[in-house]
């Protein structure tokens, strides 16, 4: 992380302890998360965070693996931070979440000839803390509808896919505001729209049970 004090070594950039490796980021859905990094900071005046990616990226689609190419300049993902992005928990630890927007970060690779060029990665990440964001949660039935849930505010959309076993979903890290929630039914099930879902900081907005019909 880069701290505000430029007189610090490395112009204020501090390395965090991370276990390098390849992770399937789609495991962390419906509010699930994993501890990514820890470290010690000379101060808590955070300015930026830099995530450095390797080149061993790939995707699986319909059981088939495709390379996920990344340009050299896209391997460093830098995001600005301010006091609204993190929280300081009791005991004095700075805590925040890195939210990787898989849907917006992957595009079909149109370079070269042919139609089987795989995909390209240009990472979109957001930083949030639980104390400065809210959540929407609910349950969609039947499971056979395989719905996609979208929480929309202005031009921002956050997506969730309900749990395969019980249909429950949770979207975390939402900016406070009034959302519309679109339940995009698949397999012949109709869509549903819920307007005026109010999201407040630190709170879960619970939606009533949603039943999709054919």
């Amino acid at each position: 992380m880069k701290l505000e004090d430029d007189s610090l070594p490395n112009s204020g950039w501090v390395n965090m302890n991370i276990r390098p490796g390849i992770i399937n980021i789609l495991r962390f859905r419906n509010g699930l998360d994993t501890l990514l990094a820890t470290g010690t900071l000379p101060n808590a005046r955070l300015k930026k965070i830099k995530l450095i990616l390797g080149i061993q990226n790939s995707v699986m689609k319909n059981g088939q693996s495709f390379p996920l190419k990344i340009k050299d300049e896209d391997r460093e993902v830098i995001v600005s931070l301010d006091i609204n992005n993190f929280e300081i928990i009791n005991g004095g630890s700075v805590m925040f979440w890195i939210d990787f927007d898989a849907g917006n970060s992957i595009r079909v690779d149109n370079s070269g000839s042919g139609n089987n060029n795989g995909y390209r990665l240009k990472s979109h990440i957001k930083i949030f803390s639980h104390s400065n964001s809210g959540r929407i949660e609910g349950k969609v039935l039947p499971l056979a509808a395989d719905p996609i849930i979208k929480a929309v505010i202005g031009t921002d959309t956050a997506t969730a896919i309900p749990d395969d076993d019980d249909g429950e979903f949770k979207i975390v890290g939402l900016t406070a505001g009034t959302y519309k929630v679109i339940i995009d039914g698949q397999n012949g099930y109709s869509d549903t729209l819920i307007q005026n879902v109010i999201v407040s900081k630190r709170e879960d907005s619970h939606l009533p049970l949603i039943r999709l019909r054919r």
Binding site: M1, M16, I23, I25, L26, R27, F28, R29, G31, L32, D33, T34, L35, L36, A37, T38, G39, T40, L41, P42, N43, A44, I88, G92, S93, V94, M95, F96, W97, I98, D99, F100, D101, A102, G103, I106, I148, A158, T159, A160, I161, I171, V172, G173
Partner: peptide
Amino acid sequence: PHTAVIYFTDHQT
């Protein structure tokens, strides 16, 4: 000085 704890999560596709 502060310790830092950073979690990772994902918005789905």
